[in-house]
Design a protein around this nucleic acid. Sequence first.
DNA 1: TCCCATTCTATGGTCCGACCGTACGGGCTC
DNA 2: GAGCCCGTACGGTCGGACCATAGAATGGGA
Lengths: 247, 247
Amino acid sequence: MAAEWRPVRQSRTHELVLESIEAQVLAGELKAGDRLPPERELAPALGVSRSALREALRVLETIGVLVAHAGRGADAGARIVRHPDDALGRLLRLHFALGSYSLENVLEARVTLERSSFEAAARSATDKDLAEAEEILTRLREPGLAAAEFNDLDTRFHVQVARGSGNDLTSTLTAAVRESVRPLILRALEAADDWPATAAALNDDHTELLRLVRAGEGAAAADLVERHIRGIHGTLVDEAAAGDGAA
Amino acid sequence: MAAEWRPVRQSRTHELVLESIEAQVLAGELKAGDRLPPERELAPALGVSRSALREALRVLETIGVLVAHAGRGADAGARIVRHPDDALGRLLRLHFALGSYSLENVLEARVTLERSSFEAAARSATDKDLAEAEEILTRLREPGLAAAEFNDLDTRFHVQVARGSGNDLTSTLTAAVRESVRPLILRALEAADDWPATAAALNDDHTELLRLVRAGEGAAAADLVERHIRGIHGTLVDEAAAGDGAA
DNA sequence: TCCCATTCTATGGTCCGACCGTACGGGCTC
DNA sequence: GAGCCCGTACGGTCGGACCATAGAATGGGA
């Protein structure tokens, strides 16, 4: 056991505990896959109660750097992991709901991130990435697809291309930002006058986007995805205002 | 084809509490500024223990949507707020430390976000934004400035311009991404062969960047900030490897 | 000998009741 | 009326008890 646990005092105990663990992560003494001592041992080692320790662990779990499993054996206990996606998604989703960001903010951020994603994907997406995107697109084209499923698959399509960019950070950000407006987009899709036609039009974009990425035409893909996103968000503004009023 | 048994995991109590509060936020029933009932009332109202409730509140605090103050009066209690910046910064910083993202990922994300920020700022920064950036730049130019302070001010300069873009989401993302590599940049600055010359060169960039933003030349500002960031990160790669090995 | 069911136990998850520190509000003193 | 003091409503912390889970250890039967 390389990590050492030193006692901690004063002011919001769980924050001090958090700092202590954070420092070990930042210093590289705790790495992904490492297991923390059991709560019942670690708490007294830090000189705090188990409750205070648990609150600190909960924070780390929220951030996506820790998971805990009960039981016994190699799989049990608290482990350092790397799961930023859900954490980031929830963060942006809640803050968007609270009005920290406007819909226009999200639109511009999506345009910026996805332009970059598509350009990078056109340069460096692997065959595997493209095949997965193709499969999502196939399911996206199924006739009679409900708006909810369409919304899920659409999200996965955009995220999949972002993954193809080879940049985990931008793809995570892309996924999180897309996630934050998911309920809004769902409302917009459900309110479409002619849903089959709307879906078909969106899929035409998707098909062309994938073709451009495959062909390595990054600039064209970036331009198209910008038009694509602005198009969807154009139908969203009214929905957002309506939703606001309705609530 | 056997039946699929869907329900696999039963949620933990604090997660259910979290969902309940989250749902009220997403539904707009809880808005920024609203105050939650005291823990001792809310816990039994939800049918859970105070500990479980507190863990849920801690999660919300981590996300930056809640703050708690002890004491008595209007200021006390748990309140819904909108403070995404620290939360996002810590999240990315820890995940970068854990290796969820490579330095190259961060570099490309910074380039993408800041190109967009500088272009937008050239279009829509207010005089106030520019004046604040100017003031930061003045302090950045002080002779004999230590690397640590330079690093802080440099971060604030970039974030200030991002704020000037008028997009809170991209500026928050910019700040968080910049924050995640702060320790690395600090090490690189401290290791510079000729620190005063390095600082002067960086400030020449900053001065020109601000001039371009003022002049509304967004495209030129975007190109320069990309060169500026790539320049700094070029000196970082070695440091990162060295830091890795040293640990 | 091998397999399987049973029991053990280490681990996180939850709950309770108590006490501490803080800061406002109201009452008391001067 | 002004200033001090104490009560009180908060979040923060603590310790202990018990529950749920799941691998490990055990032991009996084929």
